[in-house]
Nucleic acid binder design. Structure first.
Length: 1074
RNA sequence: GCCCGAGUGGCGGAAUUGGUAGACGCGCUGGAUUCAAAAUCCAGUUUUCGCAAGGAAGUGCGGGUUCGAUUCCCGCCUCGGGUACCA
């Protein structure tokens, strides 16, 4: 029988499947090894030849480890929830569950075609309720935990509640973004919804207002990559940032551990660097700058500065007019409530639309410092939510309490609203008499003057500060704007708002506006202007900076643009190449820091700031908590219901999985999630959350589920996870460098804190496979004509290149015109201008994709050349990490090699011809050289050189006409991880009944076959190789010198000179210096 | 801009700790076989001088360390990836 790859592929794939060859048990007697491929999303277009590169590599390594005696876990599954299936469903009406199942079936068939040794009994599919039950469960664990900074691990919310009951939040070391303090009694006095809101600032899974890309025209929320240049990718409609109450995961609590953990990972340097940059740790200090009071323009005519003057004097005039207008145009609900509050009907005096600081609350009781707000729909629109948050912060700092009601509440149950107001009034003490209304002394933190907190990594440059900049969204903005600057600031804020993020980033022109306020320099007492500038970001540091134009490029540009003073404080003359961003130089013009090197100055500056109580050491991270809600259908539902108070209640494990309900119409409505359309989406009468989890939910822990995939009592049994531990080798693309890998590490560390997994890091070693690009082919269409010209003639015309299917082009780059005309009906009538009777296409290497018509399907390659050839060719292309173009024509070399390998055991008629002759020394040396090389190269994941080694070995044995079973037997075992089908066929032909992919031991080279009695030494004279001389192995340096110097050619090159130096590296080289 | 990574024949690539640069394969050239083609086999294939023997140069560029550098160090250039006003 001649070599028939197709036949033996079918034969052995069926055999392996039927005998469950690749089934893995949790066999504790063997050492474990866990090899994992990154979770594929089963897209509708199936696999192309680029995808299996990593799968083949991991498969070879798995097979190798298996034959080395390890119990190897090598599973596969599917990241099955996601947008494309949902989008496809919306377009076609086909349920995403159905298309996903179809796509998975295609993927599995293609993967099996390649002969990969997956244990399919461990398959994990994220959209399967028995799997996402545990995704939901882990989410509830995060919901029920916060992070304890003292212990540096997750802590149950119940422990936090105990701390609150005892000391409020004054002593807890829980990680939080909540910056107000409350006592135990205050905590106890909070109502359920207030407690819920406070706890949301501590939970690891929590709700907050975050922004989504809202596209009005499409009526839907878009993912970041669906937004291009500020408009929707589909249709190019405008996209705005819309605030929504959504879930987030507090990954920031783990920032430091995620950073530290990277150090010990066996990942590529670039990947580690990417993660480090993403976390973006920077050490510095926060510094408080006092704000000088805004010069008071006397409130015109009103000399009576009584205790009711609660407004910011700078902005009173404007606001007063506005308030008057509002009083005259109340909403129905406001009018109704006013009727019940006016004239001290509840026992305390209320004012309506009274100016407080820079705001105009609906109703306020100044004596009890209680504000009542009635909100309509308007408060759920963009600007307002953020504005509300900012003003609440300021007002609460002034001691006010805000009660918020919705219009419906006033409409439906006004007595309940009034009851709540009276309750609150009775709780609160009168501020009249004991203290005056808000005065400058009372403003700001700790009863002192208003202070601006900034973050800097260069506290040493504090004497170079000539202005301050706050972000346009800064909470204190309104308190800082003077009457004179009012208009300018308003215009600036409007201008920045109307620009999308993309616009803002694209043009880096300097922009900003003066607030009218001044900060006071903590050391010099000088007044420093406070500006607003969009180059300061609200969500990094404190959203405010001290600007040092002499030592920061951005500050410099800003100062130059607006003509602000620049003070030199750092002498860099000793470092000619240093830039402003380098922390180098000697301090000048800096009082007590003068003459110090930057590094020492930073330390001393911080010391001084801390000593004076105006600054603190602070570490900042770029890492942000990421949004965990999607307003989509095809994802895991949140196991969360909301009680009457609106507080979030997690569903207990017994209620999980909370299954995704079947729906016919999964289109979103008015930006609300599809699930919100259901009338019965509730739990014990409480409405359930209608968002679903993002794609990274299911893929953040799937590698643990493979260890124990069918367990319905636990996400993974303790026995299984303590045996398999973690992933020893992880192979996948770089596109997951931060997202998936960062989240998985975070989830894993969380589970570690809870004692659910034994390791801190999930993926010990990681290899990034390179991308295999496609070779695109182009036709050249003449502009405005239905005419196409051949490649070498195109310059004579005005043409545009058009992708043409690479499958219609032959080896010589000639296009099959008949096929093109069938493929593209609009070209059926086209004129083709040929060269030498042929139409030659142009080529370009691009990413492989359907739209570029350059996709090569592995099924086709396997059909023609066989799975073994496909596997070996993928490896032979080059190092696994490299990006490289796919050119099918190169596969012939590997195909020839396999045929040659087959022919070592068969004659020309196809008869099996292996003999039982003893191999010669020479043959053994050839085989063991190969065994040595392959063992070493697999260990260092250099699979391309393994294939070369096999080729060399087979070439050498063919030259010797070696047809000996003893030799082939070793080679077949050695090649079985690479080419399992041909190996199994030959193995069985040799009379074995066991399986060569499972039951044998991987060949180990023996030194004795490789020893040489004579070594051919390259001899160099003055470092140039001149001649090779055979010397006995183990020869002494003296003897070698004697023999080498006696050589004719050596003597010729030495030209009669005596050797200055004689270098002899045993087994390597001889070098003579003349 | 910043952070990574990489530059070796016509092409993919090899050279593992500093020790014969270009393994292996593709492509190309010539030859054998064939009526012819495919397939197969043999020889050649870094550039350059030379009929040849044999020289010279050569791993992005310029320096350096070394008996010896693709490999180590310094300074550049180009390409790829990531990131982006992160104070």
């Amino acid at each position: 029988m001649s070599y028939n790859p197709k036949e033996i592929r079918n034969k052995w794939q069926t055999f392996w499947k039927e005998s469950e060859t690749y089934k893995v048990s949790n066999d504790l007697t063997k050492p474990k090894f866990y090899v994992l491929d990154m979770f594929p999303y089963p897209s509708g277009s199936g696999l192309h030849v680029g995808h299996p590169l990593g799968y083949v590599a991991s498969d070879i390594y798995s097979r190798y480890k298996r034959l080395k005696g390890f119990n190897v876990l090598h599973p596969m599954g599917f990241d099955a929830f996601g947008l494309p299936a949902e989008q496809y469903a919306i377009e076609t009406g086909k349920h995403p569950g159905v298309t996903t199942a179809e796509n998975i079936a295609t993927y599995k068939r293609q993967l099996n075609n390649i002969g990969l040794s997956f244990d399919w009994s461990r398959e994990v599919i994220t959209s399967d309720p028995s799997y996402y039950k545990w995704t939901q469960w882990i989410f509830t664990l995060m919901f029920n935990h916060c992070y304890c900074k003292a212990e540096d691990k997750a802590m149950p919310i119940s422990d936090l509640l105990a701390q609150f009951e005892k000391d409020g939040n004054t002593k807890t070391s829980a990680f939080t973004d909540y910056n107000k303090k409350f006592s135990a009694s205050e905590w106890k006095a909070f109502d359920a919804s207030e407690k819920d809101q406070i706890l949301m600032h501590y939970r690891l899974a929590y709700r907050k207002v975050s922004f989504v890309n809202w596209c009005e025209a499409l009526g839907t929320v878009l993912a970041n990559d669906e937004v291009v240049n500020g408009v929707s990718e589909r249709g190019g409609h405008p996209v705005v940032q819309k605030p929504l109450m959504q879930w987030s995961l507090r990954i920031t609590a783990y920032a430091e551990r995620l950073l530290q953990g990277i150090k010990n990972l066996d990942w590529s340097e670039s990947l580690k660097a990417q993660q480090e940059n993403w976390i973006g740790r920077s050490e510095g200090a926060t510094v408080f700058f006092e704000v000088a009071p805004i010069p008071n323009p006397s409130p015109s005519g009103e000399g009576n500065l009584g205790k009711w003057i609660t407004a910011n004097p700078g902005s009173y005039k404007r606001l007063e007019a506005y308030a008057k207008e509002m009083r005259q145009n109340p909403t129905t609900q406001e009018a109704r409530l006013w009727e019940e509050l006016r004239g001290e009907k509840l026992g305390d005096k209320f004012r309506r639309q009274h100016v407080l600081e820079n705001y105009i609350p609906d109703f306020v009781c100044l004596e009890k410092k209680l504000i009542v707000e009635v909100d309509g729909e308007i408060h759920f629109y963009p600007e307002n939510i953020q504005a509300d948050l900012a003003r609440a912060e300021v007002l609460e700092e002034l001691g006010y309490k805000i009660l918020r009601f919705k219009n419906e509440e006033v409409d439906k149950n006004i007595s309940r609203v009034l009851l709540k107001i009276s309750e609150e009034l009775s709780k609160r003490e009168s501020s009249i008499g004991t203290e005056s209304s808000p005065s400058p002394e009372e403003r700001g933190l700790g009863g002192e003057a208003l202070k601006l907190e900034i973050f800097t990594t260069r506290p040493d440059t504090i004497f170079g500060v000539t202005f301050m900049v706050i972000a346009p969204e800064h909470a204190l903005l309104n308190s800082l704007v003077s009457a004179e600057q009012e208009e300018a600031v308003k215009a600036y804020i409007e201008a920045t708002k109307s620009r999308s993020n993309v616009d803002r980033q694209a043009s880096k022109e300097v922009s900003g506006v003066f607030t009218g306020s001044y900060a006071i320099h903590p050391f010099t007492g000088k007044q420093i202007p406070i500006w607003i500038g969009e180059y300061v970001l609200i969500d990094y540091g404190t959203g405010a900076i001290m600007a040092v134009p002499s030592d920061d490029d951005r500050d410099y540009a800003f100062a130059k643009h607006f003509g602000i003073e620049i003070i030199d404080i750092c002498d860099k003359s000793a470092y000619p190449n240093a830039t402003k961003s380098d922390k180098l130089g000697k301090m000048i013009n800096s009082d007590f820091l003068n003459g110090m090197e930057v590094k020492d100055a930073i330390a001393l500056a911080i010391q001084k700031l801390v000593a004076q109580g105006i600054g603190n050491l602070k570490v900042n991270y770029k890492l942000r908590d990421a949004n965990f809600s999607r307003q989509r259908y095809w994802g895991e539902p949140f196991p969360i219901a909301y009680d009457k108070e609106g507080a979030a209640i997690d569903l207990p494990l017994e209620e999980l999985p909370l299954e995704l309900p079947p729906m016919d119409d999964i289109k979103p409505v008015n930006g609300k999630a599809p699930l919100s359309k259901l009338t019965n989406w509730s739990y014990k009468g409480m409405p359930l959350d209608t968002d679903t989890m993002p794609g990274n939910a299911g893929s953040s822990w799937y590698f643990l589920r493979y260890m124990d995939p069918n367990n319905d009592q636990a996400f993974c049994s303790t026995e299984a996870v303590s045996y398999w531990q973690d992933v020893d080798l992880y192979i996948g693309g770089t596109e997951h460098a931060v997202g998936h890998l960062m989240y998985s590490r975070f989830w894993h560390k969380f589970l570690y804190d809870l004692g659910k997994v034994p390791t801190q890091e999930p993926f010990k070693k990681l290899i990034n496979q390179g991308m295999i690009q496609g070779e695109s082919a182009f036709e050249y269409k003449v502009v405005n004509e239905n005419k196409f010209v051949s490649y070498n003639l195109k310059d004579a015309y005005n043409t545009i290149p058009i992708h043409v299917a690479i499958t219609l082009v032959n080896d010589k780059g000639e296009l099959d015109l008949e096929a093109v005309k069938r493929w593209r009906p609009e070209q059926a009538e086209a004129e083709f201008v040929l060269e030498d009777g042929k139409y030659i296409v142009g080529h370009e290497v691009e990413k492989m994709s359907k739209s570029k018509h350059n996709v090569v399907n592995p099924d086709d390659v396997i059909e023609e050349y066989g799975a073994d050839c496909f596997r070996m060719f993928e490896m032979f292309l080059g190092p696994i990490e490299n990006h490289k173009p796919w050119q099918t024509k190169g596969i012939d070399g590997v195909a020839r090699f396999l045929r040659k390998f087959w022919n070592l055991a068969h004659n020309e008629e196809g008869a099996f011809i292996l003999t039982n002759e003893e191999p010669t020394e020479k043959e053994m040396k050839i085989v063991h050289t190969c065994i040595k090389k392959v063992n070493e190269d697999i260990e260092r994941f250099s699979f391309n050189t393994c294939v070369s080694a096999f080729m060399i070995c087979v070439n050498d044995l063919s030259d010797l006409k070696c047809h000996k079973q003893a030799v082939m037997s070793e080679l077949v075992k050695l090649i079985s991880p690479f080419a399992p089908h041909i190996a199994e066929e030959l193995w069985h032909k040799m009379g074995n009944t066991s399986s060569v992919v499972k039951d044998v031991t991987f060949p180990q080279f023996e030194e004795k076959y490789l020893v040489e009695s004579v070594i051919s030494y390259p001899v160099s004279i003055n470092g140039k190789m001149r001649v090779k001389i055979d010397l006995a192995a183990g020869i002494s340096q003296e003897l070698a010198k004697e023999q080498v110097l006696a050589n004719e050619i050596v003597q010729k090159w030495m030209e009669g000179n005596a050797p200055k130096k004689f270098i002899f590296v045993p087994g390597r080289i001889v070098n003579i210096v003349v």
